[in-house]
Structures are given as C-alpha cells and as structure tokens.
Design a protein around this nucleic acid. Structure first.
Length: 151
DNA sequence: GCCAACGTTGGC
DNA sequence: GCCAACGTTGGC
C-alpha cells in the first residue's frame, strides 16, 4: 500500500466536488513525473491526501483513495479540451490518469502553515522549497503523523 | 547535447 | 498580481 498527495485548485475542483461526485478521473496532468506515478505506481486502494493549492489557505483538505489504476486520459484526444495534445497518438497515449474515490473531508483543513510547524514532516516533499509536483509520494510515517493531527 | 527563452506552478 | 523555481522547447 502506497500513500500519495494530489494537488487540486479548489476553485476548479475541491474536496467538496469529490464528496458530491464520490469518484472522479484525475485528468489534465501534463507532467511526466506525475504521469509516471499514476502509470506505474498508484494501485487500487492506495491512500491519497487531497490538497488544495492556490487556495486561501492552501492545505490538506481530506482523504481519497485510488479507485481505478492508470488508463489513458481521454482529454488528450479531445480537440476542444484545453488539455488536448496533438502529439499524442491513440495507439500509444502519452498521458495516463487514475480514478480516485472520496473517503473523507477533514473537519478542519490542515493548512500549509500548520504542516510546516509539525515535527516529523521536515523531509516531506510538499514542504520543500520549489516543489511544484502535483502528485507526490508520501511516506507511511508522514501519513501517520498527518492523519493523527487531523483527528 | 547545450542552454536561452519561454511557459507554468503555486505561495505570498 | 508578483515572481522564484522549475519544466519544456527549439535553435544551434
């Protein structure tokens, strides 16, 4: 079982959207590292922190779970989509996504500020300077520390 | 294969 | 809205 953190701008898609929809497909990722995680590493049942980026305040809003493992992102073939990629071929798709399922919304959002103040998270990717990756691995220890704070 | 120019992310 | 930090592109 692996642990992850996935960023979303709440103005575009928040944890409340996911709560309502129950399941969503994580389209629009156009970064190779993030794609590789979805293609190679994310397994059904893996736990995911749902992170609100570009938000006031930014922070972890709740928990989701991988529902369906990697498959081609349909938006790459959709000419009308802003995620359309003319270089990607149907027989060899460039972009892969996963489906994720709502698990829970935290009573209080764990703000980036708060996370920075917690000991044991010093090595967390999210808190590293210049780290922009929209899908990041989270260690079991980090997961447990954060989970505990949320409760 | 180098690297300058450009585009994007995301906190502030 | 600014801009640092990074990723990508494309000329050479």
């Amino acid at each position: 079982m692996n642990y992850w953190l996935m960023k979303s701008e709440p103005a575009v898609y928040s944890i409340d959207h996911l709560k309502k929809e129950k399941v969503t497909y994580w389209d629009g990722v156009r970064n190779y590292q993030a794609r590789n995680f979805m293609r190679d590493k994310m397994k059904k049942g893996d736990k995911v922190f749902f992170y609100h980026s570009n938000a006031e305040p930014p922070g972890i809003a709740g928990i989701a779970e991988v529902e369906k493992e990697g498959y081609p992102d349909p938006s790459q073939f959709d000419k009308k989509s802003k995620y359309f990629d003319p270089k990607s071929k149907k027989e060899n798709p460039t972009w892969i996504l996963v489906d994720i399922k709502y698990v829970k919304k935290f009573k209080d959002l764990l703000s980036l500020d708060l996370l920075r103040s917690v000991s044991g998270l010093d090595e967390m990717l999210l808190l590293k300077k210049g780290q922009r990756l929209s899908i990041q691995p989270v260690s079991k220890e980090e997961w447990n520390v954060i989970q505990k704070i949320a409760e």
